[in-house]
């Protein structure tokens, strides 16, 4: 099939984003597009599922087969699309509240089973769209509408939990380093199996983390052994600084390894007709 290489414009929506000025979402949206274009994946071969929240308001701000799901439920439809047609590129966009709380069961199960999707967490450490409640990644003692005197809860560590759940690709990006973020997204898309990128961003309206990230982020050394899980944990558990890049990447079997029919053809392109005649003998 001859196809012209996709251009940035092919992915661009005609609608104007509704995000606040300066929101990190603009950067993520653009870096997703750039990553897809650079990987030469055209919009009609791309399915992106979304969560509810500010990220979900981006579902129609990109031109692709977008599927805006329910809160916390971005991952299951993405898995289903991949099962039906694993030739498609499937990204699942979700917020910190959506993945680490409301949809946490999906997070763990999807990582454990190495479902072949790319999960991009738009992690601003706050519930933005619902006007500023504590999220699972909100820093301790940070005052929010639900913890006016500061949150009592220690935040969850998305990287460590993903590693523990069995994710085969775990990475972190930051909107303050857009090109690096784009490269991480590209690696995540290319990874066969479950890939999670925790994308640090700021919500200028409810949780401005820009100064913190400017001071405390660094790019993980090129020599880091990505197959060393213990080292990945060590970087993930640093509290005074935040490593950016791929923490961990290994190759693991996916569901396709158990389904020979999917080796040559996607489920939707199966041409053989299901036959019950042979199955009836068992009941005679």
């Amino acid at each position: 099939m001859t196809q012209t290489k996709p251009k940035i414009g092919d992915y661009q929506s005609k609608l104007r984003p509704t995000w606040c000025p300066g929101c990190g979402n603009f950067v993520i949206n653009q870096m997703m597009i750039k990553a897809l274009v650079e990987l030469e994946i055209p919009p009609h071969r791309t399915v992106i599922t979304y969560d509810i929240g500010c990220n979900g308001n981006g579902a129609d701000k990109i031109r692709a087969y977008s599927f805006k799901s329910l809160h916390g439920r971005s991952l299951p439809p993405a898995i289903g699309v991949k099962y039906a047609n694993h030739d498609l590129t499937v990204l699942s966009v979700i917020g910190d509240g959506g993945l680490f709380w409301e949809g946490a069961a999906h997070w763990i199960a999807t990582a454990q089973r190495n479902e072949d999707i790319t999960v991009l967490v738009w992690d601003n450490q706050i519930y933005g769209l619902t006007t500023g409640q504590t999220s699972p990644t909100t820093q301790i003692n940070y005052p929010t509408k639900t913890w006016p005197k500061g949150s009592a809860d220690e935040p969850i560590n998305p990287i460590s939990v993903s590693l523990a759940a069995g994710a085969s690709f775990v990475a972190r990006g930051w909107v303050g380093k857009p090109n690096h973020l784009k490269d991480v997204i590209k690696q995540a898309i290319k990874h066969k199996g479950f890939a999670l990128v925790d994308i640090l961003q700021t919500c200028f309206t409810f949780n401005n983390l820009l100064p913190k990230y400017q001071d405390q982020t660094y790019i993980i050394d090129d020599n880091h052994d990505k197959t060393d899980k213990i080292k990945a944990y060590k970087i993930a558990e640093q509290t005074d600084k935040f490593g950016l890049g791929v923490f961990y990447q290994v190759s693991k079997p996916t569901i396709y390894h158990k389904y020979p029919i999917l080796k040559s053809k996607t489920l939707i392109n199966q041409t053989s007709t299901n036959q019950i005649d042979d199955l009836l003998a068992e009941f005679e």
Partner: peptide
Amino acid sequence: RQASTEIEAIGIAAGAAYAGV
């Protein structure tokens, strides 16, 4: 696919059905 919850079961199914199977 045995799903991890009923919510996941129907969520995956919704994705597969949307994609056309």
